[in-house]
Design a protein around this nucleic acid. Structure first.
Length: 706
RNA sequence: GGCGCGAUAGCUCAGCCGGUUAGAGCGCAGGAUUCAUAAUCCUGAGGUCGGGAGUUCAAGUCUCCCUCGCGCUACCA
């Protein structure tokens, strides 16, 4: 019934300014790899593209910091990420990069096509910071200043990395150009905006009902709830035109005469990277890229991403594709939630978490390290809610599932087959498939789960087959039969069945733990499973044996030496080292860390401050704001209204009568509609604790503090 | 404050369009077994499905309110 002939799979393009951590792997790459390997097992026509996202200001900043060209940065991280993926068995069909010429051309053509439609873009002139000395406009990331929220002195124009708040450049206190170090000036510049608002109606219908152009495009119930939920939340709050150009010299130039010095916003060109990657792959492999991107109903497009990318892949990019015309839209976007690490968020600055390439280095001596990691992540994939990677669970999954259940079953079958039949597969009973009925049922269920992107559930089914095998051996106890009569024909039947289960496990293992799958095949004496029988096995009700009678088995080996092993503590010590590392970070953070001193100021700078003592007369919460209190403060000579962001630390009642120090000559500013005429001085330490400055001195309002 | 997602056995989580005694894995208790990596198999104990109200013949599953967690967003002069 399905018209699908080709599967086009994408994974979010990693940004090439740093390494990726285990959370990224679990979010967009491992699940896609599992799905793609599964489709390949079925013999489907599959194309999985990904690549490095190499534009954007963050890369140029990083380059400037390191004193190298952007090219050096992207080459470094493109290579690192590509090689690490490769080492972990992440089997992209093509891993491209957005700095390639073909991508620039594709993106520009895309832009031009939309531009020529006339009504997809609007032009707007806006005021933006400009560096006079360097004669150029400054992208958000090219401006630093003091964060208005936490006081961090090196906040970027779009984000403060100290407190994590999202900012806009004009919010920064004392903005400074990263280029010249000078204060930038505001100057007008023109930008192009993509009219997302124009596409709101059909997007809403498409997300809500799965109907596109009057036809059922996909089943909306097959999309994860948090995905449709977030999209509808966006759609309901109204779509705005979105700026798609930037004043920057690194990126894809905007292909218009009056757009000198402007490039496409990295978010506009990055998803087009999926298309250009397909083009390059097609060129190198003699294929037709359009049969994937413009194949209509014959194509299933799936985007694998993390939840931070949902809006882009479900709203912005589809709108771009639809505006362009001809392109297919995603049938599903199985976005994962976030993976935490031992209870906390991954944090590069804290050193909390583990990067992919670090894992490979630090587990260099760990047997089967790739599959051990893949399996641990698989079992804890954040498919529907945030999940947590824990080393204790890593050990459990490895020892209980991979070693005790799977590894031990295969070992039992091998050892028994060798001792009873000298490593030769015994003759097949005439009703060979009968005892395997239950296994076939589990495989069917496994297929359903794989196709629903429920990989965690599918991994359970995989283990169920192995468990079934263990039970089967236990109940039929060939060792007892052998003791009673070594030529009992039932022994051959039992071992034949056990070997078929082993082969089925090798197949099911392939998407999850591909390195092990190969080793199982080798152990079973199969170079690779014959593609044809595999296809029959998975696609048809007709089953046939995978290992034929008379063929020779390989030598048994222990697939997964356990981590918790009395005789050999080497693997456990690798894990213990990881746990110790985290422990050390926590210990260190217990001692309050002191923020670095700000640059010296002159006495004159200091003298500009006018500090006065005051007494809080009344305090109240500001409606519709979580953190704000509005205070009446008596300065002796007048009563001021001051809005302060301390609602999370103090209740209004506890503040009346409190003695405080006030910055009395601060420029008034409106906060949530209330004019704040000053600022309270508070001391804060690393733990987040807040206390009032000078609170217990015997002074009434009006004293001058200096 | 607004919006989204979540809250189910000690732990980690499944439970589709509401329908018989609420499931799995791990852990725990008891038993069986010895081919195997101190592995395996069986049995059992364990939940008023975050709290409250409502709709219904019937609610973990739908509606409303509340509490807590996560994310986005507004807000920290």
């Amino acid at each position: 019934m399905s018209k699908i002939k080709r599967h086009l799979i994408t994974s979010a393009l990693p940004y090439a300014n740093g390494p990726l951590h285990l959370g990224h792997l679990a979010g967009a790459y491992l699940p896609a790899d599992i799905y793609v390997r599964y489709l390949r097992l079925l013999g489907k026509d599959v194309l999985w593209v990904c690549g490095s996202d190499e534009h954007g200001a963050a890369i140029t900043i990083r380059a400037k910091k390191d004193g190298v060209s952007p090219k050096v940065i992207i080459d470094k991280y493109h290579a690192l990420n590509k090689n690490t993926f490769d080492a972990l068995g992440i089997s992209f069909d093509f891993y491209h990069r957005t700095s390639e010429e073909i991508h620039h051309k594709t993106s520009q053509d895309f832009f031009t096509k939309l531009y020529e439609k006339g009504d997809e873009f609007i032009e707007k002139v806006v005021e933006q910071y400009y560096d006079v000395a360097f004669n150029q406009f400054l992208a958000d990331r090219y401006i630093t200043g003091t964060c208005p929220k936490c006081g961090h002195t090196e906040a970027y124009g779009d984000q403060c990395e100290s407190c994590g708040s999202t900012l806009s450049p004009t919010e920064l206190i004392a903005p400074k150009s990263v280029l010249s170090g000078e204060a930038p000036i505001l100057r007008e510049t023109k930008h192009w905006y993509f009219r997302l608002d124009k596409h709101a109606d059909w997007l809403k219908e498409w997300i809500e009902t799965g109907i596109l152009d009057g036809k059922q495009h996909h089943d909306p119930n097959s999309w994860r709830k948090h995905v449709t939920g977030q999209c509808l939340s966006w759609l309901n709050s109204g779509l705005q035109p979105r700026s798609i150009t930037r004043d920057l010299d690194w990126g894809i130039s905007v292909p218009l005469k009056d757009a000198e010095g402007k490039v496409l916003y990295v978010w506009f060109d990055a998803p087009i990277g999926y298309i250009s990657a397909t083009k390059q792959w097609a060129l190198e492999n003699g294929k037709d890229w359009e049969s994937y991107w413009k194949g209509g109903e014959e194509v299933e497009l799936i985007h694998f991403i993390g939840k931070d990318n949902i809006v882009f892949h479900c709203i912005v990019f589809p709108a771009m594709l639809k505006a362009h015309g001809d392109f297919v839209l995603p049938r599903n976007v199985p976005a994962n939630q976030f993976l935490n690490f031992e209870g906390q968020k991954f944090s590069k600055s804290r050193g909390w978490g583990l990067e992919q390439h670090e894992y490979l280095q630090e587990f260099a001596d760990f047997p089967n390290k790739e599959d051990a990691l893949r399996y641990a992540l698989l079992r804890t994939l954040p498919e529907n809610k945030d999940s947590d990677f824990k080393w204790d669970e890593f050990v459990d999954f490895h020892d209980k599932d991979l070693a005790d259940n799977l590894g031990n079953f295969l070992n039992r079958v091998m050892v028994l087959s060798h001792s009873y039949f000298n490593g030769v597969v015994p003759p097949a009973p005439s009703n060979w498939s009968e005892p395997l009925q239950r296994v076939f049922d589990i495989v069917e269920q496994w297929k359903t789960e794989m196709e629903k992107f429920s990989f965690k559930a599918a991994s359970q089914s995989f283990m169920d087959v192995s468990s079934w095998g263990n039970t089967y051996l236990q109940e039929n106890a060939p060792w007892s039969l052998y003791k009673a009569n070594p030529t009992d024909p039932r022994i051959a039947e039992i071992m034949f069945t056990g070997l078929q289960v082993s082969a089925i496990l090798a197949i099911m293992a392939e998407p999850f733990i591909p390195f092990t799958s190969k080793r199982i095949n080798a152990m079973l004496g199969l170079n690779a499973l014959p593609a044809e029988s595999l296809r029959l096995f998975l696609n048809e009700s007709v089953k046939q044996p995978f290992i034929s009678s008379g063929s020779l088995l390989g030598t048994p080996e222990v697939l997964f030496p356990k981590i918790i092993d009395r005789k050999d503590t080497s693997r456990l010590s690798i894990i213990e080292k990881q746990k110790a590392k985290l422990q050390a970070i926590m210990e260190e953070e217990k001692d309050t860390s002191f923020p670095p001193l700000k640059p010296n100021i002159t006495f004159d700078d200091f003298a500009k401050l006018d500090l006065r003592s005051g007494i809080i007369l009344e305090a109240a919460v500001v409606p519709k704001a979580d953190k704000l209190l509005v205070l009446k403060v008596d300065l002796g000579f007048e009563i001021r209204t001051i809005v302060s962001g301390i609602a999370l630390h103090f209740s209004p009642e506890s503040l009346t009568g409190k003695k405080v120090v006030v910055v009395a000559n601060l420029e008034p500013r409106k906060l949530r509609g209330i004019e704040s005429q000053g600022m309270l001085l508070l001391a804060e330490r690393g733990t987040g604790e807040l206390v009032f400055v000078g609170a217990d001195q015997p002074m009434e309002g009006g004293w001058v503090v200096k």
